[in-house]
Design a protein around this nucleic acid. Structure first.
Ligand code: FES
Ligand code: FES
Lengths: 142, 142
DNA sequence: CATATTCCTATCATATCACATGGAAATTAA
DNA sequence: TTAATTTCCATGTGATATGATAGGAATATG
């Protein structure tokens, strides 16, 4: 599996926040209920989104989370690159593993690079706004 | 990681067989040595390729494995679909999991489907012959 | 103060991956 | 026929990643 629950849940969090269409902070408890996902698990995911400056959080009564930008300004790539451990389709392309020793001679390497580019382009050409439009025809955003 | 070593090794096996450019059976031991991969691990992989009719094997002295078709007639998709447990980028698309309960209403589902199609198209439009040409400029195949 | 909520640091169960072990069956060369 | 070779088959194993869970400290409201 390429995209794990972390990344998928992260996108659903972002969509949920966008759909509230509010300038208030939204408590994670509400998101967890609506999305039917463990609040504690979502916590660890949304923390990554906060650290990556995709959303901001406020503690205490009346606190919660809120988007920092308009949803057409979030690409799916932005969200996944923060929450997935790696977006490389094969280990040979992974920077953490210093790439592959065989890469210079291996006949498959150029192919993997092309696959990676294809996927990355796809993910970075779609925004949160695109996903919101899917089922409604209208745009929740702005 | 999307494609595991199984799929990657399977492709390298197929490339290795094609490069020998021989009508003889090639022993797995030789392939394992050339590719520097555990023979026993390759064994379980190439078995899947045999069962999927991509290659054929013969036991005993002078035995080994050999391709059944010309290499331009093998797509990368053909190879990976046999050796990877799933080529679905997300669990929501996986048939084994009967897909996702939320799929009908979830705003991310159409997006995942498009991603899946993009990847599948990429994989099924490249053949073994394409990979062989990468580094040589020439075509080993036929 | 009491309450709500984010933040932070662990821990855990399960599954998958990459590979190893130990043979049985088939094929050929001697 | 015998020995050597090689595919076929089933099962085991250690490491790692995934998908959570638990407990509590810090911060904000009223
Ligand atoms: S084995 Fe890593 S690029 Fe081929
Ligand atoms: S959660 Fe499965 S399609 Fe959205």
């Amino acid at each position: 599996m390429f995209i794990s629950t972390r990344g998928r849940y992260a996108i659903r969090i972002m969509i949920d926040l966008a759909e509230q269409n509010s300038s208030d902070f939204i408590p994670l408890k509400d998101i967890a209920e609506r999305q039917d996902i463990s609040e504690k698990y979502l916590e660890s995911i949304i923390n990554q989104l906060v650290k990556g400056r995709l959303v901001t959080g406020r503690r205490g009564k009346g606190g919660g989370y809120k988007l920092l930008k308009n949803c057409q300004d979030y690409t799916i790539y932005d969200i996944l690159v923060l929450t997935e451990t790696s977006l490389a389709p094969v280990a040979c392309l992974d920077d953490n593993g210093e790439g592959c020793r065989r890469a210079t001679t291996c006949k498959t390497f150029p192919f993997w690079k092309e696959l990676d580019q294809t996927i990355t382009q796809f993910l970075s050409h779609r925004t949160l706004a695109d996903l919101l439009e899917e089922h409604t025809g209208g745009n929740y955003c702005i």
